[in-house]
Each structure stands twice: as C-alpha cells, then as structure tokens.
Amino acid sequence: MDIFFQQIVNGLTLGSLYAIVALGYTMVYGIIQLINFAHGEVVMFGAMIALSVVSTASGSGFPPLAAVLVGILAAIPACMTLGYLLERVAYRPLRRAPRLAPLITAIGMSIVLQQVAMMIWSRNVLSFPQNLPVILYEVAGASISALQIAIIGLCLTMMAGLAFVVYRTRLGAAMRATAENPEIARLMGVDVDRVIAATFVIGAALAAVAGLLVGIYYGLAHYTMGATLGMKAFSAAVLGGIGNIPGAMVGGILLGLVEALGAGYIGDFTDLCQYGIFDAIFQARCADGGNLVLFGSNYQDVFAFVVLILVLVFRPSGLLGERVAERA
C-alpha cells in the first residue's frame, strides 16, 4: 500500500508537469489546428536558461530559493519571446498554406532549436545546483518532498490561472471566439493575428515554468530533454482530447499517474517466478525467493506511448472529446 501511495504522489508530480506542457499543445491546436512540435523545445530552453541563471545566481551568493526565483523570472520572458518568434517566423507566414506545411516547419523548428541549444549549452548533461534544502514528509508510509508539493501546487495554480484567463477575460473570450470561427472574430473587430500570438506566448510561459521545474525535479537538463517530454505531453493532450483545455489538464495528470503506477508495479506483474507455471524452466533463478522480471521500471517511458496508441485506436477524440466550446 505504501508503494501505491508513493507512486500516486510521484504520478501527480509528473502529471501536473505534463499537464502544463500539454496545455501549450492543446491551446495552439484549439486555435489554429496546428501541432506545435517545437513546444517541447521551448520547455527545454526554459530549463536551460533557468539552469544557467540559477547556477550563476547561486555562484554569486544568492540564497537557493532566491536563485530559483531569479531563474524563473529570467526563463519566463525568454521563453515568451521564443514562443512569439516561433509563431512569427515559422507559422504565421504559413497561415493559409496546406496543413502539412506548418507541421513540417514545426518539426524543422524543433530540430533547429535543439541544435542551437547544443551549441550554447554543449552536448553534455548539465546538472542543476543541488542546494535547495531537501525536506521530506512521511505521510501514510510514503515520503513526499517539499519540492513535489511545490511542483503540484505551482502547476495547479497555473492551471487555475489559465482557466481564469481563458474563461473570464477579454483575451480569453477573443481566444475562444477565434478558435470557433476566426473569420467572424475578425469581423467583430478581433485582431486574430495578435490573439494567436498571445496564445503562443501564454503557452511558452507555462513551458518555461515546466522546464525549470522538470530541471529541478530531476536535477539535470539536456538539449534533447524537450523531445521525450514534449511527446509525452502531446500524448497527454491527445488523451484528454486535443484542443480541449480541461482535457489537457486531466490527460496530463492521468498520464503521470499511469506512468508512475506502471513503473511501480510492472516489475511485480512481470516477475515470472510468482506465477509458478515456468518453475520447470526457471528453477535455478526462482529458487530462494529469486525473481525473473521481464519488464522493469525502465519501461516507464513506454506507458505514455502505449496510452497514446490506445487512445488513437479506441477513442481518437480523447477522453473529453472535442467539445468545440472548450477550445481556445
């Protein structure tokens, strides 16, 4: 039971990170039906920039928390600028092109950004300064770190903030109007290009925070980290229903839970010794409480993509469907 609870907490942490990245995919898809495959790279840039700033700040005597704060304050505007430039340079000129064109550009931008990051930060795995105090709480047999609580809390706050912006503000109304019918929105005086740019910028701001948090959580950053993370967040967005904002939140958290629980239990489930049917073959291995695990927790990454395939096969519109009302 304690493993279960532990994995739930780990899953929620991971899931809330996936969720805020997934929101970036889903918002852009909702408004211009484009999968911004370079979004994962924006997360990576967020992590890299934050890492550089946090390291420098820590080196020059900032207290750890202040250094992180400075890092976040640097990463957000930098990523917002990057998101804006992406839209401006790579997608806006292709607004009226066939749908495949911006998709290819998106993949191209993703490669370009990775290479640029490699040139700036080298091909090495960089480590985050490990100077934040590690505080652990023992709850129901699981140990929860203050960092996990902070990550979950921060992500939930940002999701609430985003929901507020989308459903309660002038900008959000314009975003939803544009998602529903850009032409009419234009006729009603909405500057659709600006609204689309704003969508990219908001998504990038979330990505910046996600990058920083992922970097701190795992303690490292690498120029290819955006690719896997981005694909998983994209899977989460598809799981919830691409284009659907609440869907991305639910999909992200669900995917995190699936991954964590899967990683926690797959070893037990695929331990051939416990089933007793292969005794004759594996006698030597299984003797004296030995085990023969077919898949270990290193298969964690597979779960996201198994989920993606299952969703695409059985419910292509995602869990919450493609309710146009929720698009933005």
Partner: peptide, 22 residues
Amino acid sequence: FANMTALENVMVGRHLRTHAGV
C-alpha cells in the same frame, strides 16, 4: 459563436474598444 454564452458573444464585440493583453 455558438458555444459561447450570449454575454460572451457580446464581450467579444467589445474586444476592439478595449486593450488588456497577455
């Protein structure tokens, strides 16, 4: 905008005469 409320539809119309951005 069929999936927005009546009030929100009108609010979109106000977009032009207002300013707040991101």
